[in-house]
């Protein structure tokens, strides 16, 4: 039940996009249509779900004081985490290309973008600061990815409609997208009062 709790918390309450505003670059660049947003969102769930547990293993078995080398190597955290993310993204890209060309065509262009998506590295760093265990970090990765997916699909749907609205010219495009995201963030803040533990009971 604790895992479900973490999943819900990381997807809705601690939403990476709307509570921490991580991954904003691709969030704004790829949210012009729901179709592309959907593809990127799926790719993010996938990559977060893989990289957070891998980074957990690296942190606990290689970098920590009780790890393989028996000394505190935490200063190598950033380098190793980002290397894992970059290589995982590349690996996922190759695997998807080999086995599912249709999925590759849908996701392909977004995959390289994901390496520099702050939500991915941010997820790994939050996983460290929250001191999750392995199973919890899997739940956190999937939940965080799902929350980001929801956020980007929601903003894309709104942006598709807002094209027909009479927005002041200088605010068009980027400006209004920011303000809408602000409102979305505010509405997500309402979820902060939810205690997931009580919800599940």
């Amino acid at each position: 039940m604790d895992l479900l709790n973490i999943f819900i918390k990381s997807a809705f309450i601690e939403n990476l996009a709307l509570a921490y505003f991580l991954g904003m670059c691709s969030y704004l660049a790829v949210s012009k249509t729901v179709r592309t947003a959907f593809g990127l969102g799926l790719a993010v769930i996938f990559v977060l779900g893989i990289t957070i547990p891998i980074n957990w293993i690296i942190d606990h078995y290689l970098l920590s004081e009780n790890g393989l080398f028996g000394m505190d190597l935490t200063f190598l955290r950033f380098i190793l985490f980002i290397a894992v993310i970059a290589s995982m993204v590349q690996l996922v890209e190759m695997v998807v290309e080999r086995f599912s060309p249709t999925l590759y065509n849908a996701l392909g262009i977004f995959l390289p973008l994901i390496t520099v998506n702050c939500a991915i590295l941010g997820g790994s760093l939050f996983m460290i600061s929250k001191e999750y265990n392995f199973a919890e970090s899997v739940a956190f990765g999937l939940g965080g990815g799902f929350g980001w997916f929801l956020a980007i699909v929601a903003i894309a749907a709104i942006r598709e409609k807002i094209r027909y609205s009479n927005v002041p010219a200088p605010l068009r495009g980027l400006g209004i997208a920011f303000i809408i995201t602000g409102f979305m963030g505010m509405s997500f803040m309402a979820l902060m009062g939810i205690d997931p533990a009580a919800l599940i009971k």
Partner: peptide
């Protein structure tokens, strides 16, 4: 709070 950053940036 976080969302205000979005509003300020939008403006």
């Amino acid at each position: 709070l976080f969302p205000s950053a979005m509003f300020v940036l939008g403006v």
